[in-house]
């Protein structure tokens, strides 16, 4: 595993831990989109169908279990935990996430590498992950009052995506037959969605002012 990939996985892990820290210790999910969290739970559930059938490494299996466990527990917290539930900004989190799921499913049925159930589900998860952040970005823009943990959560998620692109470039030049258009294009789209947020996040950090997004 190269350094970009490891750093990507670690920033992904940190983003999840930041979010769990916020939810578990502060008992607040203010500014967090339940729609995005449900989409991530669906992404991991459909991508890791191979978790018990194909063993890659202990690292791989453990990380998959962490991402599955954390995404479903975040959804559980936001839906079922009395205190956390109360802080959920339901009125602003109105993005219709079905509008993302259906096109991704159709696209996966049309564009995939192999027409098998597992492969189409895997491809669907790649497409869905690319756009799953949209409800979260819309919510940030609407509330315009972004606390530090929420800002850091989105920042680390974006960092994870950017590092994965460096990982793909590295692997392309160091491994034979490493060409994966579906993953690359989806990953690039996903990273570009963060560009705007990154711009405001970094300038607020540089000027040492509270992060706000323009309306």
């Amino acid at each position: 595993m190269n350094a970009f990939r490891l750093a990507g996985d670690m920033t992904h892990l940190i983003s999840v831990l930041v979010l769990l820290l916020k939810i578990h210790t502060i008992k607040s999910c203010a500014g967090i989109s339940l729609k995005t969290q449900e989409l991530y739970a669906l992404v991991f559930a459909t991508r890791y169908l191979d978790i018990f059938t194909d063993f890659i490494s202990l690292y791989n299996t453990v990380m998959k279990l962490i991402f599955l466990g954390s995404s479903f527990s975040i959804v559980w917290y936001m839906r079922r935990h009395k205190l956390v539930q109360r802080s959920y900004d339901k009125d602003h989190d109105t993005f219709r996430h079905q509008l993302l799921v259906l096109p991704c499913l159709i696209l996966a049925l049309l564009i995939h590498e192999q027409f098998t159930f597992k492969e189409v589900m895997w491809t669907f998860s790649i497409y869905l992950e690319a756009v799953a952040i949209l409800p979260q970005l819309v919510l940030l823009q609407r509330t315009r009052n972004i606390d530090n943990l929420t800002g850091q959560y989105v920042f680390f998620l974006g960092a994870y995506r950017s590092l994965y692109i460096l990982n793909w470039i590295y692997r392309y030049f160091t491994e034979p037959h490493y060409v994966h258009w579906i993953t690359w294009i989806s990953g690039l789209v996903q990273t570009l969605l963060y560009a705007d947020f990154f711009y405001y996040y970094i300038s607020s950090w540089k000027n040492n002012v509270k992060l706000t997004l323009p309306a």
């Binding site: 996985d9 490494s57 791989n60 998959k64 991402f67 994965y164 491994e175 037959h177 994966h180 993953t183």
Partner: peptide
């Protein structure tokens, strides 16, 4: 299978 090596990613 080298063609499927992207599957070792998360």
């Amino acid at each position: 299978d080298t063609d499927r090596n992207v599957k070792d990613e998360l």
